[in-house]
């Protein structure tokens, strides 16, 4: 079971909340202070991507964030419910006409790619998976100190 599980409506305004919660739980789990900025950014990127995928696919289901504290590592899994084609692209957006700049960018393929580029540049241990019923990004960081008690 996840240490903390968060579900939020797939709206951009809630991504900040997910970042704050993830950083707070990571700090408590003993993730190094110097790495917390990276945790915040990586979970924000993963959530922005999930929100974009839900919007493009017109899904009303929430985005799911699992924060998992283990003895030696802290993991975050961000799950979306967007159907993906085998190539890893969302089924509907793959055939979407690229009519200029997207109004909000989150669903744009270029920015989706940039989000994944940021995540892979930031996080050493990252796993991206996608299937017909949804996808997920799982990231983990070593826990370098004893958990914070206060």
């Amino acid at each position: 079971m996840a240490t903390v599980e968060l579900r939020f409506s797939a709206l951009p305004e809630h991504v900040r909340t997910a970042r704050l919660v993830a950083a707070a739980v990571a700090r408590r789990a003993g993730v190094d202070e110097a790495v917390l900025d990276e945790v915040r950014l990586a979970v924000g990127e993963a959530c922005s991507r999930a929100v974009g995928l839900h919007e493009v696919n017109e899904l009303t289901t929430p985005v799911r964030v699992l924060l998992i504290e283990d003895e030696k590592k802290f993991s975050i899994e961000v799950g979306d419910e967007a159907p993906h084609t085998p190539a890893g692209r969302p089924a509907e957006s793959a055939g979407r006409p690229g009519a200029g700049e997207p109004s909000r960018g989150a669903g744009g393929d270029e920015e989706d790619d940039m989000g994944l580029a940021v995540i892979s540049g930031l996080v050493d241990d990252v796993e991206v998976s996608a299937g017909e019923s949804g996808g997920s990004i799982r990231m983990s960081w070593p826990v370098t100190s004893a958990p914070v008690l206060s």
């Binding site: 922005s48 960018g105 580029a117 940021v118």
Partner: peptide, 13 residues
């Protein structure tokens, strides 16, 4: 205080 890839996309735009 915080910048993500969406912000980078806007700057590139």
């Amino acid at each position: 205080d915080f910048l993500d890839s969406t912000g980078l996309g806007v700057l590139v735009g």
